[in-house]
């Protein structure tokens, strides 16, 4: 088993946190190997951000594969840039609030979620990444959701006021992800 995932969006959408939380959960709770590789640019804010996450039961060779199994796109430029890299039968998780799937690819699974609208409805756009992480885990069940939640809680240690909001976003994401199966 080797799963190549790319998470892409605007800088500030929490793309890196998404990747790191998932990588941490894999490291702490499974016997899988994992690599998290952030693409990095000169800009600190704005621009596009993406990271690659490989989960494998063998030694990981390339931390950034040309062919993706899974792709999470949170904005239009990321969709345009990466959709062609998804393998046949690959899974595309798309924030349909702000991404219009323009490609004619019919050979992939598309999990379309109006993520921005939903989290705005929850009252805080900052949990977009946690919500999408929930969708991804709910759909793929690549690692148990409890282990991800543990990683989220560890990350939020010292910010108890945000726990409820994140829990809500994560659980709604899981539910939505499961329902799309």
């Amino acid at each position: 088993m080797e799963n190549n995932l790319c998470i892409a969006g605007f800088g500030g959408q929490g793309v890196m946190t998404f990747g790191k939380l998932l990588a941490t959960a894999v490291c702490d709770n499974t016997d899988y190997n994992v690599t998290f590789f952030p693409s990095y640019g000169a800009e600190q804010r704005g621009g596009t951000a993406n990271c690659y996450l490989i989960i494998s039961d063998r030694e990981i060779g390339t931390p950034m594969s040309d062919i993706l199994d899974d792709l999470v796109v949170l904005n239009q430029p990321s969709y345009d840039k990466f959709v062609s890299k998804l393998k046949m039968g690959g899974r595309l998780f798309v924030n349909s609030s702000i991404v219009k799937p323009t490609s004619d690819r019919s050979d992939i699974q598309i999990i379309s979620v109006p993520a921005t609208d939903i989290v705005v409805g929850m009252g805080n756009i900052k949990v977009l990444n946690i919500f999408m992480l929930g969708v991804y885990i709910g759909y793929t069940e690549i690692v148990p959701s409890e282990s991800i939640w543990k990683s989220i809680m560890e990350k939020m240690a010292g910010k108890p006021s945000l726990v409820e909001l994140n829990k809500n976003a994560f659980e709604q994401g899981i539910e939505l992800g499961r329902s799309q199966k």
């Binding site: 790191k20 994992v34 998290f36 590789f37 952030p38 931390p63």
Partner: peptide, 8 residues
Amino acid sequence: VVGTMMEP
């Protein structure tokens, strides 16, 4: 790559 990637 080795400098910026995360691994267990």
